[in-house]
Design a protein around this nucleic acid. Structure first.
Lengths: 240, 240
DNA sequence: CAATTCAACCTGTCGGACAGGTTTTATCAA
DNA sequence: TTGATAAAACCTGTCCGACAGGTTGAATTG
């Protein structure tokens, strides 16, 4: 499959740094580089593009901030593994600048995670099923420590995304972890009784079991119920 | 809702540029800046953080590449409107470095867009319903010109996302436009007869009408069918 | 009081410099 | 020949100073 150069347009000419970014991404594509492969040095690119090293540096740094490449002192830049870093920053920026609200985040998560639950039930390895269940059980065992419960909760959702075997889902779920970490305590506090909190944990266990049992419908429905309950808790706390 | 500073951790200390990025995003949050609001000048930040202007510049440029801020010569940097630019780059990077394949893109799109169709049917304004239908009709009218059909197709999907009134969905749908533009012709060519191509267009019209009629179930089902047909066409072309 | 002009500010780009960290090469000993 | 070691070449991170333009706001002028 041949891929036409798109970025040349995205980074309009007249913008040297944009041109450099285009040249670097282009280099990755035409040479079919994969994660770990080394890129040209700043000096080399500087000469090739006839721009100052500063321009090349800003281009490299931009790509590094977006996690497309890795930078290390002394070493050459390398192509990076996919990472949700860029998307996390974008989502958090949207939330903090009042362009995105929490309900919208929940709707996206619900939509995505109903699918990851379905796929996880179909594709999970035994080891993944085990890890997912472990996280759910850790939530019950650390019942008193809200922080630990939260971390297990987040890990639980991310592991389901991984088990879906689609890295885009992992990225999206990962991208929401930042904002989730900030809203999660609100939901926790709004669940007045321990009984309510226990019920929430219960759903996690059931979901983990549905995934282990390879029941996609059940997994999807449980995930939906989980988000509906969470949304209710948030509304009760006055977020909506 | 109070938001704890997360980026300080993300951008480890010892990394001056990372610190600067953290300081800038922090500035946006503590001052509750919104889109269009002006940021401090490079010189000001340079003094405040006791780092060289180069470092601040690389930080600004990184945030600009991720479309969190806008840069203009002579003017101060401003907080930017949400944009799918960063996510587009990330997705394209994943595809080009063989970390993401086309089927995975289709699965995510199908998942997301079944939801945007549902929401659009529930929330679309009359004007949006009209525009969506216009795009679908433009596909039929420019039947002979594959390029025009494609652009209308992309605009059609994006407008549905907009009508969902959730900017995150718009961003995700927009982020896939780049790769879609590259795979779309394959699907088009693999539809051997004009009858097949016409059938594809027909689904778009029906979907537009379901959205206008305010029928979320029908809209969602039609969107699902659309993606299933497209996937079939791609498989026929030997992509899967 | 409004229009104009000008000074102060700001960003984009360049070149050079130096402190470390890394890779390659050359040298030397076994 | 081989394998370890030392030196040279390379590389990134950061800083500084400079200058060309674009922008803004304040002083000046009619």
């Amino acid at each position: 499959m041949t891929m036409a150069p798109l970025d040349e347009e995205q980074f309009a000419s007249g913008n040297l740094v944009g041109t450099a970014i285009g040249a670097i991404t282009q280099h990755i594509r035409t040479n079919e580089l994969g994660p770990g492969d080394r890129l040209p040095s700043e000096a080399t690119l500087s000469k090739e593009l006839s721009v100052s090293r500063s321009v090349v540096r800003e281009a490299f740094r931009s790509l590094a901030t977006m996690r497309l490449i890795d930078l290390n002192v002394g070493k050459r830049a390398t192509v990076a593994l996919l990472d949700h870093g860029a998307m996390s920053l974008m989502i958090e920026h949207g939330v903090h600048t009042a362009q995105i609200n929490i309900n919208q985040v929940y709707d996206v998560r619900r939509t995505i995670e109903m699918r990851t639950a379905t796929l996880a039930a179909l594709r999970r390895t035994d080891a993944e099923a085990r890890i997912i269940l472990d996280h759910a059980q850790a939530m019950e065992q650390n019942f008193a420590d809200a922080d630990k419960v939260m971390e297990s909760d987040l890990a639980f959702h991310l592991e389901i995304a991984r088990a879906s075997k689609n890295p885009i889902f992992s990225i999206i779920v990962g991208a929401f972890q930042g904002v989730s970490r900030q809203t999660w305590p609100i939901g926790w506090r709004s669940r007045a009784s321990d009984a309510e909190r226990y019920a929430m944990n219960r759903i996690h266990i059931e979901l983990a079991e549905a995934i282990r049992a390879g029941d996609p419908q059940a997994a999807s429905q449980l995930m939906a119920r989980h988000f509906d309950e969470s949304a209710k808790a948030l509304i009760a706390a006055g977020i909506a």
